[in-house]
Design a protein around this nucleic acid. Structure first.
Length: 134
DNA sequence: TTTCTCACA
DNA sequence: TGTGAGAA
């Protein structure tokens, strides 16, 4: 659990994040503008990025390179962010399967993503996801 | 050094 | 989607 704390605590100025992500400061701010990341701020000015922010930046970068737009990335981020609630997508969902709408689909994709070791095989899933949001 | 805004592709 | 300039 203290691992989580560290992830959200490590704070980098934009300059460091630039090198870490190989993005320009401009792009990083640009992504923030579009709600892709929520870096903390010092009293007034500088952005302070946590390790998670950097990690997310890398994901955003990868996603954009896959040809997704901001809106699409927002969707992907949205389903990766929230901790998995106990959603039963098995036999019980058979009943609701009539309405396999966006929400249902995202739920399904979410569990698909959270199941495998998170930072490992996600790129494959993203490849699939990009079809939805491209 | 970093930030913001405006404007332009 | 991304950049450049100017000002603070």
């Amino acid at each position: 659990m203290s691992d989580m704390i560290r992830r959200n605590m490590a704070l980098f100025p934009i300059g460091i994040v630039m090198k870490l992500t190989e993005l320009t400061a401009r792009q990083i701010r640009y992504y923030e503008q579009n709600g892709l990341i929520q870096p903390a701020r010092t009293e007034g000015k500088q952005r302070l990025f946590s390790f998670n922010d950097v990690d997310q930046l890398l994901e955003i970068k990868a996603l954009i390179e896959k040809g997704l737009n901001i809106a699409g990335i927002k969707q992907v981020l949205l389903i990766q962010k929230p901790p998995v609630e106990k959603t039963v997508i098995t036999e019980k969902s058979e009943a609701k399967r009539k309405e396999m709408s966006d929400k249902e689909l995202r739920q399904l994709l979410k569990t698909q993503i959270m199941n495998p070791s998170r930072l490992n095989d996600t790129s494959l899933i993203r490849g699939e996801l990009s079809r939805f949001f491209h």
